[in-house]
Design a protein around this nucleic acid. Structure first.
Lengths: 231, 231
DNA sequence: TCCTCGATTTCGTCG
DNA sequence: CGACGAAGTCGAGGA
């Protein structure tokens, strides 16, 4: 990994065009050829970048076509597409290279799959007498988060979100249309379950005959912890 | 901006929990208190991070609670939420600080709004005799990208995407349902316009009676350039 | 301020 | 390899 602090202007040409005027920035060149252009603020997204795999070519200032004040020009070319990042380096203020090795990678806990696992374990959160058929019920148009049966034995498709938006209701509607064509499952009811459900999503769900359930993840996790401690 | 190359382990606690085992990584501390943890690969997304505004507290190794081999512990606390990033620094291999100043920011060309402007100017791309009613036609459920009239005088709602996906067709369908309730506009046809349209989106659109149009942004921009040169 | 939508989204996973 | 859905998504623009 190479770290450069430089006064530079940057141009990106590819899926769109983007230009960065002359200023001092951090340039990160990674081992896989990817390049990040960061300013001293903003979030984790760089001002400009090139995704790997890519190769970098450095042209010295002697070449006549370089604009005024450019010490060297970096051309970062994507290996797969014709996307290109051009860095006009005017002045290098810092330049260092480092061996990092391969990273063991991130371990996450608390993403949607965890919420799904918890709801599957505590399926009666949806109502008394509910039983789990299966998680990740695969269909031709994508996986239904949870398939269950309610107290009366009716099949229930559950769409699970952290934030319940209109798109989620649309998604569940598509699944319900498909599932209701299967005579072994039909009729299938829908439940839209989320930690927070937007009013518009609630209205649309009601219009489609879909029930909404608000989930308390902390409480569900708490129950899970208590249950875990018993073993 | 402070750049540190260090052997470290990292833990994030907040909306979820995440853990990074001990390895050598790049740590970037920005002026607004945000911190990025990068490995020597992957694309622009850090392995772990803290969004601004945030504050960092450094605890020396003398404190008894620190685990084996930790030289110092960084606690990065979000100013707005209770999200927290903890970096256990075992060994610092590089450490430098730099003044970057404020960045003038990125200038983009070719995003959806540009495509929308071009299509509005060249509305006959959709067919002979088309005329523009207006861009960003606001409805209760969101703005319709372009509202136009075809050669026969029928109202046409256009949904514009760079990549035409199923979600875009759903979105346009919702708009059409709403617009068709307005007796001043009805009947309203739908056109799904994108640089690339996925086969499944095409099938769904056909099923809903929505026409699909593939746009050539380069060609449209070319026409725009030629027109611009005339002035 | 909240909400909605786009993004050079990136990233994982399954068919 | 394509397709679909999640993300600690982030960021911009209008209500």
């Amino acid at each position: 990994m190479r770290l450069v602090i430089a006064r530079c202007s940057v141009d990106y040409v590819g899926r769109l065009k983007a230009h960065l005027p002359l200023a001092t920035r951090l340039l990160v060149v990674k081992a896989d050829g990817s390049v990040l252009v960061h300013s001293d603020g903003g979030s984790y997204k760089p001002l400009n970048w090139m995704s790997p795999p890519a190769t970098m070519r450095v042209a010295a200032a002697v070449e006549a076509e370089l604009e005024e004040g450019v010490a060297e020009q970096w051309t970062v070319q994507s290996a797969k597409t014709d996307d290109r990042l051009i860095v006009n380096v005017h002045q290098i203020l810092h330049d260092s290279s480092h061996e990092l090795g391969v990273d063991p990678g991130l371990v996450k806990d608390g993403v949607e799959s965890d919420l799904q696992r918890l709801l599957a374990e505590q399926i009666e959160t949806l109502g008394t007498g509910y039983s789990l058929i299966r998680r990740e019920y695969y269909t031709a148009i994508g996986p239904v988060d949870i398939l269950a049966r309610d107290a009366s034995g009716t099949t229930v498709a559950v769409e699970l979100k952290r934030r319940g938006d209109i798109d989620g209701v649309e998604q569940l509607t598509r699944y319900l249309e498909l599932l209701n064509r299967d005579p072994l499952l039909a009729p299938v009811r829908g439940i839209f379950a989320a930690q927070q459900i937007k009013p518009q999503a609630r209205v649309l769900a009601a219009d489609r005959g879909i029930d909404c359930v608000t989930l308390d993840y902390d409480a569900m996790r708490g129950v899970d912890d208590v249950e875990s401690r018993l073993f």
